[in-house]
């Protein structure tokens, strides 16, 4: 067994252990921190495959961005213990366990078979920025554009759900309409930081 494989097994074991930690922690904050470690182990694997750019992206976006967002959510929602209902051992959970074991065995078998035949892991020749950029914007150009639409959907959806029924801040158009109404009625809406009032005060 060569060093890269030993290294991979060590990092992989850590990765799996932290992944188990994410789903089994009772405190959301612990889950989030396990997730952070999990993301970092993944970044280490990218480095070992000579995909340094991907590793950097992994750390910056996932470890740096996503986990921080999750922590913010936990901060806002409070981080009490999540009451974990013990799932009773019905046939469903037994079946799920069986299928999961079967799945794990299948994967383990086929990956082990690969390892026996292949001494050195392939390096990701595509892990550098140039290669990633070329691939993304040629072969996967349609996927990139579809991601844009997906993000648009998420954005509209967040607006639709977060503003709620008739609450939330007024839109610019509504404010404008109020101003016009006030003008028509001969009253004025007091401005705070308006340019003209600032200038008038200066004079």
């Amino acid at each position: 067994m060569s060093w890269p494989i030993l290294f991979f097994i060590l990092v992989g074991a850590l990765s799996i252990a932290t992944a188990v930690g994410v789903v089994s922690s009772r405190q959301p904050i612990h889950s989030a921190l396990f997730l952070l470690v999990n993301f970092i182990t993944l970044a280490i694997m990218y480095v070992s495959l000579e995909a340094q750019f991907l590793a950097a992206v992994q750390v910056i976006i996932y470890a740096g961005g996503i986990v921080i967002l999750i922590l913010f959510v936990i901060m806002l929602m409070g981080s009490e213990d999540v009451p974990v209902d013990r799932i009773d051992s019905s046939w469903a959970s037994i079946a799920a366990l069986g299928l999961g074991m079967l799945m794990a065995a299948t994967l383990l078998y086929s990956f082990m078979a690969d390892f026996l035949f292949q001494a050195e892991p392939n390096t990701l020749a595509g892990g550098a920025p140039y290669a990633i950029g070329m691939t993304l914007f040629t072969r996967y150009i349609l996927a990139i554009e579809m991601v844009a639409i997906l993000l648009l959907v998420a954005l509209i959806g967040a607006l639709l759900l977060a503003r709620g029924p008739r609450t939330g801040p007024k839109t610019g158009a509504e404010l404008h309409a109020e101003e016009e109404e006030a003008d028509a009625a001969g009253t004025t809406i007091p401005y705070v930081d308006d340019e003209t009032t600032v200038m008038a005060a200066a004079e």
Binding site: L150, V153, I156, L160, L161
Partner: peptide
């Protein structure tokens, strides 16, 4: 994902 996300909303 595009259509699922939109339908959840």
């Amino acid at each position: 994902e595009i259509f699922s996300l939109a339908l959840y909303i």
